[in-house]
Design a protein around this nucleic acid. Structure first.
Lengths: 341, 341
DNA sequence: TTGTACGCGTTATCAT
DNA sequence: ATGATAACGCGTACAA
């Protein structure tokens, strides 16, 4: 109850007053910086506790020009891949005494830009972000023009030294090869937002390249609606139009699993009638029956890595930091079977 | 390039200087507040653009005593339930022009307290949090003592008016009833961190109550390790010790799915040998075979609701805001079958 | 060792 | 309509 009536938080001035000393001494005690006698330190500590004093990072940041905050922009936190990455970033941040200011762009470049603006106003020390299209992003342009330290996550940016992600193209080539080894000749690529995710587009490129190199037919493409309610009809139409397809590469595991469930509804067996390979390597793929063949990626580690990079960049501006390849791995699964004639 | 050499961001003072006016006018333009002549406004806007001026929320917040930031503390963002909730909070926050400062406590009360301290120092306007034990939380005590607006998510706190979550007890009773209807008499409850999550404990209470009311045996309890590698042996031992068990209530869906996969490895069929009911209602439950019987909850909506509550509390301090029950729903699934004799 | 005074970037008051 | 000035809470030279 005490001073709560004043209805404004205690400042170092209040503490100094109660402790009967100058504000500089309070600052020294709070920051463990500079010399201060044990007696005074005790008095200050007591006064601070009594007032429930918590230092204000507003004043501190204004003065020090550091907010100990890093900004993060991802398309969505609902997607387990991004949430795992954010968890990694968060963990590294706290290890370094920083906090995370999080924004979700919903795969929208306009929201990306707005988010970056807000984060700049908040004066974050650095940023980590996944943008819709790294080659052409107003948000990244803004960041660069301000010289604010940032790193890309999952994207491959124009400046190669800044990215930290999976080589989608290369990974998708592996997928094509896996299909080919099982005798598949006609593939389909099913994606969620081909035009709003450069990752998805890169995966398609890789698949196409593999098909070409391996003399497979050019893959048919189905871009499905966000709203998975219509997946059934969309998929059925797609398969009717392309009856030759024996294998489907889904742009991510969630979609792959939804496709398998839908195929089951349509009376098709996986992998006897159609084989499926996903992308991401989420745990559930291992627990279903059949297990999901997929490209395993390591979003948590990627988040940690990219956060480590921005950390290093802040602490040591002279050196340049090259990205750490986290890599990927093809994981076989029961959803890919030999093609049946 | 221009003034970048000065290596510090343009301030309102810089803009004023370049526009040849006072800083007050710049402020008026930037905030669209007060009267300013069209000519001057244009000059200011031009100067601001030229300098790449972005207002500093540090100065603004210091002055206004508002940060337009809300703090969020959850156990983990990797768990899809929490990430969905955070997404909901985030969405509401941006709708109200606020940003989200995110912390993960890793189910550790000590980290909860530290996170809250940091968030207080950052002077967030309000907080939303899920704590380990709402009835006994130093973090919440601190929040209360400071009079900082906050809301609980998933927890049921001592102050009933502050929570926004699922009635775990009631939901778990439904689970018991569902088992009972199928003839199950001997149940097991498998949980991840019984002692570090009041939600998990509440679910157990509800299950126990249902068993008692329905004349079932008291449920056997298995608390499994974080590291799911050992799930197989732990589960096997548990079932050996309790051969009478025909149904298992898993404290969440992820665990339920892992248990089903493990049982499959152990050569047990679900639901013929053992029935399973989960908790949360994640989408994957619908896509597996058999589908997962579970309690469906609505974490995204809960996030939105609780964020709405803190918003309202900030805008209108006079009124008191009661929580909106989001509720839950029992969803039948193939993982629950009749008990076989 | 300790205290005083200034500036960090902003908004609001008060003259003009 | 516009500008000078005083806070806001803090860190830090500098003085004592």
């Amino acid at each position: 109850m005490e001073d709560a009536s004043r209805h404004h938080e205690a400042t170092i001035k209040d503490v100094a007053h109660l402790a009967g000393c100058g504000i500089a001494s309070v600052s020294r005690v709070v920051n463990n910086k500079g010399q201060v006698s044990p007696q005074l330190r005790a008095k200050v500590l007591k006064a601070a506790a009594e007032l429930g004093f918590e230092i204000s990072d507003l004043g501190r940041s204004l003065r020090s020009r550091k907010t100990q905050t890093i900004g993060c922009v991802v398309p969505s936190i609902s997607n387990p891949v991004y949430s795992a990455a954010v968890q990694g970033i968060q963990d590294v941040a706290v290890e370094n005494g920083q906090q995370l200011l999080l924004s979700c762009s919903n795969y929208d470049p306009e929201q990306e830009l707005k988010a970056v603006r807000n984060l700049i106003s908040k004066r974050v020390d650095a940023m980590v972000l996944t943008v819709s299209d790294a080659q052409n992003s107003a948000a990244l342009d803004l960041l660069r023009s301000r010289g604010l330290p940032y790193r890309l996550l999952f994207n491959s940016g124009p400046d190669l030294s800044l990215d930290c992600g999976v080589d989608n193209y290369e990974a998708a080539r592996h997928v094509g090869q896996a299909f080919s080894k099982m005798g598949h000749q006609h593939l389909g690529y099913v994606a969620l937002r081909l035009n709003r995710s450069d990752r998805s587009a890169q995966r398609l490129s890789g698949l196409k390249a593999a098909c070409e190199a391996l003399m497979l037919a050019e893959p048919a493409i189905l871009e499905v609606d966000e709203n998975s309610v219509f997946l059934t009809t969309q998929l059925q139409t797609f398969l009717n139009n392309h009856p030759e397809i024996t294998g489907i590469f889904a742009s991510n595991d969630q979609l792959a699993i939804a496709i398998i469930a839908t195929l089951r509804q349509l009376g098709k067996k996986v992998p006897q009638d159609i084989s499926i390979i996903g992308f991401d390597g989420i745990d559930f793929g291992l627990m279903m029956e059949p297990t999901l063949a997929t490209i395993v990626t390591y979003p948590y580690e990627m988040g940690r890595n990219v956060a480590g990079l921005v950390q290093a960049e802040q602490n040591n501006t002279t050196q340049s930091f090259s990205p750490i390849e986290v890599g990927f791995e093809y994981r076989p699964g029961g959803s890919l079977g030999p093609v049946s004639y």
